[in-house]
Design a protein around this nucleic acid. Structure first.
Length: 938
RNA sequence: GCUCGGAUGGUGGAAUUGGUAGACACGUUGGACUUAAAAUCCAAUGACCAUUGCGGUCGUGCGGGUUCAAGUCCCGCUCCGAGUACCA
């Protein structure tokens, strides 16, 4: 009988959906297991073959846990706000909601076709008002909270107001902006409501602040670093420069210590935890205050090496540092301004990455060394970043390589403060093994002791103090985009007010074009109805704005990570209209037992979700402090990107072999427009984007246009996406599932390649044939042979271990070996074949269901108890020993496992082949490891 | 640059604690079946030397080291991938 996978798979997918096989409800009698995937962004390119890799793995575990008797929550949804839909809207004029809807439909069809055991009744979409209502609600809770360092918890802002009313703002140990003005209770009471609100914003967990952005005047918008290439916009090649903008920020830095500490309790890979540790970047040291000569100003720096303070020979400020303009001398003014202008064109990443080009300008001003009172020249240099620490460093060239390089480049002195160390060629950065010299009271001290003494002196002289710094910056939360959650905020006299909870969701308004306004306001500035009437609590026409009862609404929207920071809780009770989820559901499902997704989210999504979880826990809204207990990071399935090369600054494309010395920018082209010989379909390319319609092409002699290829992340923005649909069609979902697992370790990245898929497909056909005799289904009730039972139990053991270790590729191999063996043994005993079907059902659920049904069962295989491994079927009494000479295996010998070390040695030494190998020589040593190996050393 | 990964046959990969390197597949080659093809089945397949058989040498990105024994541990590199704070 033919293995008709298309029919079988359609049949069972329909059945699972009709019978709601995988719907999970809170059940106090059953232990829970929450298996979650990072939900997809429904891109126009469709689900690509990289997505299912993780989904298949989590589905295998979900199905496996059901066999073990767990109540499994395994939901799926869509991260459906985001830039690509908006970009598409700009290009085509279609509403992002509409294209998103279309894309979701396609994703759903593709997901269904792979046979996942998702509970679709719990689906969420971050762009649904029913969902983002709660995202807005959480934003409001953040706005209404501050962070107390004494209790290590977020607290209602009212408590802070009470404190202000009683004691002013001194003596508080709470998270806030820097540069606070200290006020008394009396002063607080005299402040106007506007002044009070401005002060409170300095404490709220989400607040407005001036932040630097990449501003592209031609596009009238802010660009991600990603979208800026060599100081120009990726789209259109327009100039981009740094600009300060007032934006919402999230005070994640308040949680830095907890985010760091609680990593220890997570069952995540060490590498991801390490990445988060480094991202949070806790460093201990001191803040030091340098006076500026002939100015009132102070420059504050943070250093982890206060012990080297006598090695300071200059200071470097970020070009954007506030003081630069005031301290620069008239003589240096022009040079400094030019430098600032040049630096504003560079991206932060370029500034960090480019250590070879050393640049900087002297401001003409001097600081005063706090101990020696010597003047220290103040420079600006783009290796110092404004958003980092205080945006200023005390440069110690003998102890820091970047400072050293800077000093050497500009001929600045390099005083040595390390005893017996040569610093003429490079800086000496070892903290521990050094003794300080040329440093007054620090002379002769070493390591931690020197640091401690330095800090003590700084504190005594009141010019600095011990300080713990975090690299983690507060997260900018505003986007100048249309397709995101609107802020539930309106402005009274320029200060933010929240609309009342009752009136959520604040629904995204309609606009005529998805572009910024002519005067550079975000797209929501185009909305005709985007003002808030505080009388009726409704969105009304902008023209009604009177700043008395009708006020303008916020024009920014929230970033992509807002909706994904808490979605795991919404799945528990996704239809709830009263709360993010019911208490009952939150208490039962707790948090995610297994989270599978890419490690590229290591420091983005995974940190923000932890932050929001902790915050919601602080408010008592959820019972857990961490969202994801265990996580597995699937390696990326990489795509082969295609590039067309555009001559710099033109709209002329040059075929790969014609480039020669011409300077070109590589531009991603959609892989679907490129054939197997790497030739581009020029007509399709021209139609692809308006800007290419008038492009010119330099082709090869034969008229073809050749593109470049590179293996990269598979991503819509790289236009290199390959879909799983064709594979399901040609080989079936079970084959796709097993093939993706067979490709290699789940955590390892690999380029997509379908070369081996027939092997897996053939395996499933062989598996099917085990249960058949020619055209007839044939499984007998006769007892199985000893060998067959051995094969089965060996397989149970290995596959189970592999699932527990997330080593799915080796379980597929194990199934292949089992089927090869059972086929050889001509086994068709139900005693073996029934448990085998259960064993394979997490991997290939459709074929397993079908065979299970044929074996006479009416119910789904999904919740059938997992087969039990029995040791007695697999015990071995002999071992094939490798006999090595000097570590090289020469022959093998079958010996009983019961033999002792001495007995083994005796037998081996008597063996004729041993004599041959030794050729009359006496061995120096014989190493016998029973059950493992014999090694004879000559 | 910095942070985190990775590198094993022609290809994807396997190898529990350091203990027979290359399981399982793909591909290739040869054979069976067939009028033929497909499908299926059987055999060989790391490289090199030898080949009548027994065998031997080299071999896990590169260079060192530890060990009776290293793909695995240590030190130093090279190349590739991811992240780098507005792609998601």
């Amino acid at each position: 009988m033919q293995y008709n996978f298309n029919a079988i798979e359609a049949k069972w997918q329909k059945k699972w959906s009709e019978e709601q096989t995988f719907v999970a409800e809170v059940s106090q009698e059953q232990k829970k297991f929450y298996s979650l995937d990072m939900f997809p962004y429904p891109s126009g390119a469709g689900l690509h073959v990289g997505h299912p890799l993780g989904y298949i793995a989590s589905d295998i575990v979900a199905r496996y846990k059901r066999h073990l008797g767990y109540n499994v929550l395994h939901p799926q949804g869509y991260d459906s706000f985001g830039l690509p839909a908006e970009q598409y809207a700009i290009q085509t004029g279609q509403h992002p909601a509409k294209t998103t809807q279309t894309n979701i439909k396609r994703y759903r069809k593709q997901l269904d076709q792979i046979g996942f055991s998702f509970d679709w009744s719990k689906e969420v979409r971050t762009s649904n008002p029913d969902y983002y209502r709660w995202t807005q609600w959480i934003f409001m809770q953040l706005f209404n909270s501050y962070y107390c360092y004494n209790t290590h918890k977020a607290k209602p802002i009212e408590e802070l107001i009470n404190h202000f009313e009683e004691k002013g703002n001194s003596g508080l140990n709470v998270a806030s902006d820097e540069n606070l003005t200290i006020f008394s209770a009396t002063e607080w009471k005299q402040y106007s409501p506007e002044q009070k609100e401005a002060i409170l914003l300095q404490y709220r967990l989400t607040y407005l602040a001036e932040t630097e952005v990449n501003w592209c005047p031609a596009l009238g918008t802010v660009l991600a670093n990603d979208e800026v290439v060599n100081g120009r916009s990726e789209r259109g090649g327009h100039p981009v420069h740094k600009k300060k903008m007032k934006q919402w920020s999230m005070r994640i830095s308040a949680y830095a210590e907890r985010l760091l500490k609680d990593l220890n309790q997570l069952d995540w890979s060490d590498s991801i935890k390490e990445a988060q540790r480094n991202w949070i970047g806790k460093s201990e040291g001191a803040s030091v205050c340098f006076k500026v000569k002939n100015h009132q100003a102070d420059i504050e720096v943070f250093t982890t090496r206060p012990d080297t303070i006598f090695g300071v020979s200059f200071m470097t400020l970020a070009p954007e540092h506030d003081l630069v303009k005031t301290i620069t001398t008239s003589k240096q003014k022009q040079a400094v301004e030019d430098y600032i202008e040049a630096a504003s064109l560079k991206s932060e990443r370029d500034r960090m990455a480019d250590v070879k080009t050393i640049s900087g300008v002297f401001t003409g001003a001097y600081a005063v060394h706090p101990f020696t009172q010597e003047p220290i020249p103040i420079w600006i240099g783009d290796y110092v970043l404004a958003g980092y620490g205080t945006g200023a460093v005390m440069a110690v060239p003998c102890g820091d390589q970047r400072d050293f390089d800077f000093a050497q480049h500009f001929n600045l002195p390099i005083p040595n403060v390390f005893e017996g160390v040569d610093v003429s060629k490079e800086a000496y950065t070892d903290k521990e093994n050094t003794v300080i010299t040329n440093s007054d009271f620090l002379n002769g001290l070493a390591g931690k002791k020197a640091i401690k003494e330095a800090i003590k002196a700084l504190e005594e002289k009141n010019i600095g103090q011990r300080q713990t710094n975090f690299r983690l910056r507060d997260a900018v939360f505003s986007r100048q985009r249309y397709w995101g959650e609107p802020f539930p905020v309106y402005y009274v006299n320029g200060l933010p007010r929240l609309i009342d909870e009752k009136h959520l969701p604040l629904v995204l308004p309609e606009i005529d074009e998805y572009l910024p306004t002519e005067d550079g306001a975000p797209p929501l500035g185009r909305a005709k109805n985007w003002a808030w009437n505080t009388q009726t609590n409704q969105v009304v026409e902008n023209s009604k704005t009177d700043h008395i009862s009708v006020f303008p609404l916020e024009l920014n929207t929230m970033p992509g990570w807002a909706g994904s920071s808490w979605y795991l809780f919404r799945y528990m009770d996704s239809q709830n209209n009263e709360a993010i989820a019911s208490k009952e559901a939150l208490d039962y499902w707790q948090n995610v037992d297994l989270y599978i997704g890419g490690s590229e989210h290591a420091t983005g999504h995974l940190l923000y979700a932890r932050f929001w979880t902790k915050f919601l826990n602080d408010l008592g809204l959820i019972p857990v402090e961490e969202p994801f207990k265990k996580m597995i990071n699937q390696g990326m399935i990489l795509g082969e990107s295609a590039f067309a090369y555009r001559k710099k600054g033109t709209n002329e494309f040059i075929s790969k072999n014609k480039i020669g010395n011409i300077e070109v920018d590589p531009i991603h082209v959609d892989v679907s427009m490129v054939n197997l010989s790497n030739e581009l379909d020029i007509e399709a390319f021209k139609k692809w984007r308006a800007e290419f319609e008038s492009a010119k092409f330099v082709t090869e002699e034969n008229g073809s246009f050749v593109v470049g290829r590179e293996v990269e992340k598979m991503s819509k923005s790289k236009y290199n996406v390959v879909n799983p649909d064709d594979i399901c069609e040609a080989y079936g979902a079970d084959t796709l599932r097993m093939y993706e697992m067979f490709l290699g370790p789940i955590e390892q990245a690999k380029p997509w390649n379908t070369a081996g898929i027939t092997g897996v497909h053939n395996f499933l056909r062989k598996f099917w044939k085990l249960y058949h005799n020619g055209e007839q289904f044939e499984v007998t009730d006769l007892p199985a042979s000893k060998e067959a039972l051995k094969t089965l139990h060996k397989t149970i053991k290995k596959v189970t271990e592999d699932i527990e270790n997330f080593s799915f590729n080796t379980s597929v191999s194990t199934f292949m070996i089992a089927v090869n063996e059972l086929a050889k043994q001509k086994c068709n005993a139900k005693e073996v074949l029934a448990p085998l079907a259960v064993l394979i059902s997490p991997f290939a659920p459709h074929i397993a269901e079908e065979l299970w049904e044929k074996m006479g069962h009416n119910d789904s295989i999904a919740k059938v108890p997992y087969p039990k491994f029995e040791e007695k079927h697999v015990v071995e009494d002999t071992k094939t020993y490798p006999i090595s000479f000097n570590g090289k295996m020469r022959f093998t010998l079958d010996l009983p496992l019961s033999l002792s070390k001495e007995e083994i040695e005796e037998i081996v030494m008597k063996e004729e082949k041993t004599m041959q190998q030794l050729a009359g020589k006496t061995p120096k040593k014989v190493i016998v490891v029973p059950g493992k190996i014999v090694n004879i050393v000559g």
